[in-house]
Design a protein around this nucleic acid. Structure first.
Lengths: 136, 136
DNA sequence: CAAGCAGTTTAGAACAATTCTAAAACTGCA
DNA sequence: TGCAGTTTTAGAATTGTTCTAAACTGCTTG
């Protein structure tokens, strides 16, 4: 097995202004070296432990916030006290299955939103979130 | 001063299956006898106290949840740990000013969303939330 | 209108998610 | 290799919300 730290990841962290520490690289691997997915702080913490790369929960929180601030992750709030981090930072929207807390992406290329009002004076657009809520 | 309980409100609560107790009527007044607005549990609790109708915080939470379940209120989650209740239950969307936590409605009549994918098998649409995030 | 019971309210404890703190451990550079 | 500044960590603290058990109230019935 390749125990080598992916140089890409280290570089990516560095260029985001983050030192590629053991913990950050471990979390970055769990996050970015696979398909796009959604994590919570708890789930990522558990995943890191399972991969024999234990990271304290506080560090998981710090790291998720840093990655989000650096634009590496996108935070999606679907319900009170339920915050997901999405490794897909491109344009897309979400399905949220209310009955079991699942979150799924769907691409935004087919979706067009028209007639949105202009942002209030003195503000600039940050982004538009569309959450399609469904239940079983 | 008119100490009379608005009969409309009492009836509205009753038909939602809720006994029109002093506390629920007091909160319903604060919520529904004025223009549409957004409250948090804390803000409503403070408002009730200021109106000399103190209600315990637990009751405020219970009541907000009951009103939401009864369709009298709509819950809007904009940020982790920040849940608003909106007295406007009609079709509309939201502006969220991230930099200062303000939430504003905007009507959905001008807004059209096209190309949304069909809900996953076995699920039915609950609603579509559009949150336009802006910053100062 | 008194009694009784289910539904409500309440203070405070409990809980869950997240952030803070202060100390120990690292990282990167000289 | 030494050192200054970062980062990590365990655990405490904070925040927002729900739970608990006891007191109370609104409604119905006799």
């Amino acid at each position: 097995m390749s125990g080598a730290t992916s140089p890409d990841l280290a570089a990516r962290l560095r260029s985001a202004g983050l030192r590629p520490t053991r913990q950050r690289v471990a979390l970055a691997r769990a996050l970015f070296e696979r398909e796009h997915h959604h994590v919570t702080a708890e789930s990522l913490h558990a995943e890191a432990k399972a991969a024999r790369n234990p990271v304290s929960l506080a560090t998981v929180y710090n790291t998720l916030n840093q990655f989000r601030d650096a634009g590496l992750l996108r935070e999606v709030v679907v319900a009170p006290g339920r915050s997901y981090f999405d490794t897909n930072t491109g344009h897309h929207h979400h399905f949220y299955v209310e009955t079991d807390g699942e979150l799924h992406d769907f691409p935004s290329d087919k979706v067009t939103i028209e007639g949105l009002p202009v942002p209030p004076k003195g503000t600039k657009l940050s982004r538009v979130d569309v959450i399609v809520r469904v239940r079983r």
